[in-house]
Amino acid sequence: MADPKPLPFIYQFISGAVAGVSEILVMYPLDVVKTRQQLDSTNATKGTLNCIRTIIKDEGFSRLYKGISAPILMEAPKRATKFAANDEWGKIYRSFFGVSTMNQPLAVLTGATAGATESFVVVPFELVKIRLQDKTTKFNGMGEVVKDIVQRNGVLGLYKGLESTLWRHIWWNAGYFGLIHQVRGLMPKPKDSTQKTLIDLTCGTIGGTFGTILNTPFDVVKSRIQAGSARYKWTYPSLLVVAREEGFAALYKGFIPKVLRLGPGGGILLVVFTTCMDFFRTMRDGKELKDKPLK
């Protein structure tokens, strides 16, 4: 399948931003549940539905959207960077390796590099979100969290957990974009826009699910590192600590709400992103045709 017509960076950025905000508005409560389960080392928050009921009963429905301001502000640059970086790195790697179209190894490599790029944008927002989602939080909003972090640790304190975030995003994006490329190659060519949307939704959901399977252990330790626990400092040693003290299954705490979010969420991301990109391609093609001089 031929690669779609490339567009300038700004169109990729806008499309990624719209896709990210769309996904977070629909799926955010599952992210709150996921974080609660990952921070719980006593196994008190068992079951996704039970956790949701407990939060609503004890803290009110609005708590399911606690800390959403940070992700909303984050989603536009985060997802925009994800898709734009994936496209731009794809161009670089295709040129470097001398291939005209994307292949499976390049899709994985491009996704991993895009994930690493995305991490530098994400870390401060993720840190604030984790601090607000923690059940024991003393903060009421983003400003309070940022002020506390800067006062205690300086501006660089906002990048606590960068190393673990890098690994989380490298693994997820490698699985997500790599599998999307693989699944798309197995799909029939869409006959209309409805079939194209269904194919994108299927590819994105499968890619999001696979990426989540790969990166959940890294997400668990990232949440604990950013929550402020002195016991967790570096990713791979922290993986061993959790597995040794709580069992291997503890590395997949929060997996159900996470995969329920990022499986369908990955589908939403891809559908909205490709729809926006197709809109911009149509708009540019129409403008180029209009501006073309008549002979």
Score class of each variant (00 low, 15 high):
residue 4 P to C: 02
residue 9 F to D: 11
residue 12 Q to S: 05
residue 14 I to K: 07
residue 16 G to R: 11
residue 18 V to R: 07
residue 21 V to C: 05
residue 24 I to N: 10
residue 25 L to H: 04
residue 27 M to E: 08
residue 31 D to P: 04
residue 34 K to N: 00
residue 38 Q to T: 09
residue 40 D to L: 07
residue 43 N to W: 06
residue 43 N to E: 11
residue 44 A to F: 02
residue 44 A to L: 10
residue 45 T to P: 00
residue 51 C to K: 01
residue 54 T to M: 07
residue 55 I to P: 09
residue 56 I to H: 08
residue 64 L to M: 12
residue 65 Y to P: 01
residue 66 K to P: 04
residue 67 G to A: 09
residue 71 P to V: 09
residue 75 E to V: 02
residue 76 A to W: 11
residue 81 T to Q: 04
residue 81 T to D: 04
residue 84 A to H: 06
residue 90 G to H: 13
residue 93 Y to D: 04
residue 94 R to D: 00
residue 95 S to K: 15
residue 95 S to R: 15
residue 96 F to D: 01
residue 98 G to M: 10
residue 98 G to W: 11
residue 105 P to N: 01
residue 105 P to D: 01
residue 107 A to G: 11
residue 109 L to V: 14
residue 113 T to H: 00
residue 123 V to F: 01
residue 126 E to T: 06
residue 127 L to V: 01
residue 128 V to T: 12
residue 128 V to N: 05
residue 129 K to I: 04
residue 131 R to V: 00
residue 131 R to S: 13
residue 134 D to Y: 04
residue 136 T to K: 14
residue 137 T to C: 10
residue 137 T to S: 15
residue 140 N to Q: 14
residue 141 G to Q: 04
residue 144 E to G: 01
residue 146 V to Q: 05
residue 148 D to I: 02
residue 150 V to A: 00
residue 152 R to C: 03
residue 155 V to W: 12
residue 155 V to R: 02
residue 156 L to C: 05
residue 160 K to I: 03
residue 165 T to Q: 12
residue 165 T to E: 10
residue 166 L to N: 05
residue 169 H to N: 14
residue 171 W to D: 02
residue 172 W to Y: 14
residue 174 A to C: 02
residue 176 Y to D: 08
residue 177 F to S: 01
residue 178 G to I: 09
residue 179 L to S: 15
residue 180 I to K: 13
residue 180 I to C: 10
residue 182 Q to F: 15
residue 184 R to V: 03
residue 188 P to C: 11
residue 188 P to G: 08
residue 189 K to N: 12
residue 193 S to Q: 12
residue 193 S to C: 07
residue 199 I to E: 14
residue 200 D to V: 01
residue 200 D to Y: 10
residue 200 D to F: 04
residue 202 T to A: 15
residue 214 L to G: 08
residue 215 N to R: 07
residue 216 T to V: 07
residue 217 P to K: 10
residue 220 V to A: 04
residue 221 V to P: 12
residue 225 I to R: 00
residue 229 S to C: 01
residue 229 S to F: 05
residue 229 S to W: 07
residue 230 A to S: 15
residue 236 Y to I: 13
residue 238 S to H: 06
residue 245 E to V: 03
residue 245 E to H: 02
residue 247 G to L: 07
residue 247 G to V: 03
residue 253 K to M: 00
residue 258 K to V: 03
residue 259 V to H: 05
residue 262 L to E: 14
residue 265 G to D: 09
residue 269 L to I: 09
residue 274 T to P: 08
residue 276 C to H: 10
residue 277 M to F: 05
residue 278 D to C: 06
residue 279 F to P: 02
residue 280 F to V: 03
residue 281 R to V: 11
residue 283 M to K: 14
residue 284 R to T: 12
residue 287 K to T: 09
residue 295 K to E: 09
residue 295 K to T: 11
residue 295 K to I: 09
